[in-house]
Nucleic acid binder design. Structure first.
Lengths: 143, 143
DNA sequence: ACAAATAGTTAGGTTTACCTTACAATCGAT
DNA sequence: ATCGATTGTAAGGTAAACCTAACTATTTGT
């Protein structure tokens, strides 16, 4: 149960996301999505399978294991919470929010993550406070 | 002016911090601070010197160039702003705040950084809002 | 069923950032 | 000035994550 690298977390996250719309995922879809070579994806998938996070049977496609799903969902929750915080509270646009969430989700600790999550929820309940903050950025870029 | 890796940004940041208390810094101090080998530091310093961010003359010590200083100060500002946000607004303890700032500072974009900075300043002016949030964590760990 | 297209793998290479071990240079105390 | 301690460098090695080129395996269209 050694910790995953940022890179492997990304693969797992994408697999989980792709599995929401199809039964099984193919390596080539990941290669396209990440804009990297099929060879690199192949390597990464073997590592994930080695760690029992996915079941990988070449042309038959990729399936996620319960352990893999749990890990993927943790990363996805971090991703979504950060994106929401950047968009709804800080008032940044979706592209920037996503890009940053995608990087930060791999380095943030659980403590900071949970605190941001709670803070974000607290802010949702205090629209006025946030609206007033965002007012100050109406004329700024990246809205 | 290609972008620095997280690792090289860290070296530059530490050099800049150490230079605040002494005229010139030695490689061995960095090795101790980062808990890595002298050999690795030596390598990294040659890369930074190659990029004209520091002037490195072996036993004579390390000095920072104007370009290096500018870059270092950018990273340090990110570091300090994030730490302050995590501590003062989210109410996390200094250790956790520092650890996370140290990672996030290398991956966050300027847009998100500036927005967090502005938001942090906005929060400073609205103590009540933040105090009320922090009240909810009095019994939680990581205060 | 079989050729072409698509998908996956293997082999060998690169870069980054670390390591250890061994050696060289410098500093500092006597 | 010299010897020992400290500091820095060189050589060679590892691991992760990517690459290309060439190969194999599978799927698909006719």
């Amino acid at each position: 149960m050694d910790n995953l690298s940022a890179s492997l977390e990304d693969y797992l996250e994408i697999i989980c996301n792709l599995l929401e719309t199809s039964q099984s995922v193919k390596a080539v879809e990941i290669a396209k999505k990440l804009n990297i070579s099929r060879a690199s994806v192949s390597e990464a998938l073997m590592k994930l399978a080695e760690k029992d996070l996915i079941i990988y049977e070449g042309h038959k496609g990729i399936t996620i294991t319960p352990t893999g799903l749990k890990k993927a969902q943790e990363v996805i929750l971090k991703h979504r919470t950060l994106t929401t915080f950047f968009e709804n509270t800080l008032g940044l646009n979706n592209t920037i929010a996503e890009e940053n969430a995608c990087k930060i989700e791999h380095v943030i600790s659980d403590e900071v993550f949970f605190r941001i999550k709670t803070f974000q929820e607290y802010c949702e309940k205090n629209k006025k406070f946030i609206e007033d903050f965002k007012e100050g950025h109406k004329n700024t870029s990246h809205e």
